[in-house]
């Protein structure tokens, strides 16, 4: 069985060597490296690990630590070009094992569009991974609309993935809750931002994949619908739940019952395979995990593991 992982991270070699050699890298001061050893692996070492996991293709994204939306747009655009060129090289050297998601400088929408265009149309990348927020702004802000429109035209896919803190941080930083709860809160807010901000109505062909199973979006949509029922969301023509099947979600729920609910609410054609390789919050044996789920049919497992992603990317192995 094939498998295509949309949620797998890369650390650029150019960053690693700059840090090791004590050089400034696109404004990042040299600092001691404290990263997962897998992030220093060569693509060939990575492929060996993918083989052991049964993962055929990684849609590789440079990690969220490289967003740097708070810094100057030009400087970070250059950083992101270097990140994207490295990921592109992986896809050239191993076209059957890697595809790429770009970094784009969201602090400057024009630069972000230009880099997305370069990555998708010149480098053959799939789309981009972006944060839930940009310097405190969520994606309903009108300044981002040209990006969504451009992405829609390119057929680019966005993987939404938090960087830095989440909405939980101001309440508590203890017990890993900013990650274990915060990632999922942020994703529900991003769902709301796209839906309630009218982006999904304005861009009917926009492809958004919400990482971590979309967080609490599907479970919380009943209460969002209640807001719509009582007239608090007059700006959208349908209740929020009607938009669930407009998004894609990875399967990174760490819960069979949560994944089952996601499938039942969003539709089986909307859930793709995502592992969060190589971080500790990943699924340890992701292909085996999906295959082991008794509440999923064989067809549902295949849809998640590879078929939906092939459809989304317009590629076919059959």
């Amino acid at each position: 069985m094939r498998s295509i992982d949309i949620h797998a991270h890369v650390t650029p070699q150019s960053y690693l060597s700059a840090m090791k050699e004590g050089r400034v890298w696109h404004g990042v001061e040299p600092h001691p490296l404290d990263i997962e050893p897998q992030l220093e692996w060569t693509p060939e070492q990575r492929i060996k690990d993918m083989d052991s996991l049964g993962v055929d293709v990684q849609i590789a994204s440079t990690g969220a630590q490289f967003y740097y939306y708070g810094r100057g747009g030009q400087e970070i655009a250059a950083m992101h070009r270097e990140c994207n060129d490295e990921v592109h090289q992986m896809t050239i050297d191993h076209p059957e094992r890697f595809k790429g998601l770009a970094q784009i400088p969201m602090q400057d929408v024009d630069l972000a569009i230009a880099e997305l265009d370069r990555c998708v149309n010149q480098l053959g990348m799939v789309g981009a991974m972006i944060d839930d927020k940009v310097n405190g702004k969520t994606f309903d802000e009108p300044e981002f609309l040209p990006l969504w429109k451009a992405a829609e035209q390119m057929g680019a896919v966005f993987l939404i993935h938090q960087g830095g803190g989440t909405l939980v941080n101001p309440r508590t930083r203890k017990y890993h809750l900013p990650n274990t709860i915060g990632n999922l809160v942020d994703r529900a807010v991003t769902f709301a931002s796209f839906v309630m901000g009218g982006v999904m109505d304005a861009c009917p062909d926009l492809k958004i994949c919400l990482a971590h199973g979309g967080g609490y979006a599907c479970y919380g949509v009943g209460r969002m619908d209640r807001s719509w029922d009582v007239g608090r969301l007059p700006q959208i023509p349908q209740p929020p739940s009607a938009y669930l099947s407009r998004f894609y979600y990875d399967c990174l729920t760490h819960s069979e019952s949560a994944l089952r609910m996601l499938i039942d609410m969003a539709g089986i054609d909307r859930v793709v395979f995502g592992t969060d390789w190589p971080f500790d919050m990943q699924i340890d044996w992701p292909v085996s995990w999906v295959l082991s789920l008794e509440s999923l049919t064989q067809e549902e497992k295949e849809a998640i593991l590879w078929k939906n992603m092939e459809n989304l990317l317009g590629i076919s192995s059959e």
Partner: peptide
């Protein structure tokens, strides 16, 4: 309830 799986992983 829905988020318990990720809490367990953490």
């Amino acid at each position: 309830c829905f988020g318990a799986g990720r809490l367990d992983r953490g």
